[in-house]
């Protein structure tokens, strides 16, 4: 029972959603709309689960006084203040918007902007033309980096002979665009087709109940 019913649910939902794609009849569509709504409602709970896991992790840290437990207190303080501000004051509430504008945005954006520095350091230290592959990669990267900012065209127009500039005033930009829409696009398309076949095969295995790794986490 515990094993069979989930497999049946997957199979029925999967097959229904697969064939409804081809059937525009309203009878099918109303069932389909029902399924979409159900998925959405379950989704609401799935969101809360993520928070539940987080709360559990930090709660344990605090009760066990594990190293850095003070930071877990910070997590809780942030969570409780923000959630109550938003739930009581509404999503356009003054405090809620204030927290978002002045804490959430700067923290998230700054955290990610650290990568600009890491990237520069990696560019200097790790991006070496050690192999033919790495060399090709670097050349393409430099072309795109140079061509996709105004200074590429600017330098080209300043340095290249005037007759060339007259012919192709935006050469760096155009070369970058060719790399993007030519070789880059071809490679990405190949990867995409391969990945699509992989996704179809995984989906089929889920519907047929052969692939069950998504149940694994629940039995842990």
């Amino acid at each position: 029972m515990k094993r069979q019913i989930p497999l049946i649910i997957s199979f029925v939902c999967g097959i229904f959603m697969l064939i409804q794609f081809f059937i525009p009849h309203p009878g099918f569509i109303s069932v389909y709309r029902g399924i979409l709504n159900w998925a959405r409602i379950i989704g609401v709970f799935a969101l809360i689960i993520g928070i539940g896991t987080l709360v559990r992790l930090h709660f344990r840290r605090i009760t066990r006084r594990s190293p850095g437990w003070f930071y877990s207190v910070v997590v809780f303080a942030g969570l409780i203040v923000t959630a109550s501000a938003g739930i009581i004051g509404g999503t356009r509430g003054k405090l809620f918007v204030w927290i978002f504008q002045n804490i959430n945005i700067p923290l998230d954006a700054t955290m990610f902007s650290l990568l600009a520095f890491f990237m520069a350091s990696a560019a200097y230290r790790a991006f070496r033309a050690r192999t033919l592959d790495a060399t090709l990669l670097l050349i393409a990267a430099v072309i795109v980096m140079f061509g996709r900012v105004p200074i590429g065209d600017f330098l080209w127009q300043a340095v290249a002979p005037q007759s060339w500039v007259d012919k192709v005033p935006f050469l760096p930009e155009q070369v970058a665009e060719w790399v993007m829409s030519g070789p880059n696009m071809a490679a990405r398309r190949g990867i995409m087709i391969g990945a699509a076949l992989g996704a179809i095969s995984t989906s089929l295995k889920i519907i047929l109940g052969i692939e069950r790794s998504h149940f694994a986490s629940s039995s842990q």
Partner: peptide, 17 residues
């Protein structure tokens, strides 16, 4: 790209599977 440039060998995409 970061792995390819900095590692000795990289399994790309489906090669991992």
């Amino acid at each position: 790209p970061f792995f390819i440039a900095s590692c000795d060998y990289t399994l790309m995409g489906e090669e991992l599977y």
